[in-house]
Design a protein around this nucleic acid. Structure first.
Lengths: 198, 198
DNA sequence: ATACTGTACGAACGATCGTCCTGTAAACGA
DNA sequence: TCGTTTACAGGACGATCGTTCGTACAGTAT
């Protein structure tokens, strides 16, 4: 059988994880299967398994890969702007566009992983909690800056606003997947209302 | 083996579904397994399987059972009150309490099922979409009534507000499961802010 | 040329999956 | 009281699960 031409482990892993993230967004990280993944990649089960050592490691790597690609796609393009309300709005719009464009065919993998592991202690639950804290921190920072700059009323609690915004966007992802009409536009309006009437 | 004394199929199904809902809230509807469920109930796999005919029917029945118990626990106690803002707030508080008290050990099963099936067409996705529409309609109705009664500003779009409230509560369930401190109180505050009754 | 390391394959493991078939004892209708 | 139906148990099925093993070939170093 033809061998993968001079592909280092890292390259192979990257290819695998790319497919794994897409599959997991549909079937969940628990729905990931080494056998099916290997088929889809025209690899052997054992070869794929050897790349990660265990299914849990595959799940962890898949999750981390999704977080990285999300960060690259959504956060990085706006990270350079000055903190505050404009950057926050830009971030939220990019975030919603990420869902609307269906970058991942099955929707947000962080939300999926949250639902799957939030009641099951282990490394994956820890990874999920960490990712959520990071996202929350990013939102929190810009909201606090906006409040201090007078772009948002002083009565607005940054953590509460961050929670509400996160809720709107992640629920929007589900609504988009369920093909509820106008879900993306609705979420966009709701974000504005929350930031306007806060 | 001793037979279930004068227990109709419906009774056995009810017992099974009660356990199934609890398990599914943790492991998901896809994580449900006829074998493990049978063990937990001290039944045979085939006996349990025969009660539903197929795993998909078991999943559907489990989901519907969860919706019914949720309705009984959260909606029914407030359904008698007159429509409007007070009932809406009571509903939201009961809903949040439902999560905070961990009535289901793994959190909201509707959200879990949404995540699992929102990208996979079939009867379960349809059931999920229907349940969400119902919940949305309940919120929508009271919000509209509140707007008409002047309890909420006329500028508030009922559907948008309903979406935001749903997002807050369902995300709160996840935060509670992840043991984020003060998640329930935060959600309660956010609901108030959104409704402008702060 | 030789030895070594890294990478992936093929085969097989025991366990568990959903499903089906058959037997049988309790409950029911006559 | 006696068939009939109901409500399961028990066992087996093919498929698939994650994992382990031994092996073969490529590239690199010696």
């Amino acid at each position: 059988m033809p061998r993968r031409s001079t592909a280092a482990v890292a390259d192979t892993r990257a290819e695998v994880l790319d497919v794994a993230v897409r599959r997991a967004s549909i079937d969940g990280l628990e729905g990931l299967t080494i056998g099916r993944l290997a088929d889809e990649l025209s690899m052997s089960k054992s070869g794929l398994h050897g790349l990660f050592g265990s299914k849990e490691e595959l799940q962890l790597a898949t999750f981390e890969n999704a977080v990285e690609s999300f960060t690259r796609e959504v956060w990085l393009p706006v990270a350079g702007r000055p903190p505050g309300l404009p950057r926050l709005l830009a971030l939220l719009d990019r975030w919603l566009a990420y869902h609307r464009r269906r970058v991942l065919p099955g929707g947000c993998l962080v939300t999926t992983a949250t639902i799957e592991f939030d009641a099951r202690p282990g490394p994956l639950r820890d990874a999920v909690a960490r990712a959520r804290r990071q996202m929350h921190a990013v939102l929190h920072a810009d909201i606090r800056t906006a409040v201090e700059a007078g772009e948002l009323p002083a009565s607005a609690d940054p953590a509460d606003v961050a929670f509400t915004l996160y809720a709107i966007v992640s629920t929007a992802s589900q609504a988009i997947q369920l093909e509820e009409r106008g879900a993306s536009a609705r979420a966009r309006r709701c974000v504005r209302v929350v930031l306007g009437a806060a």
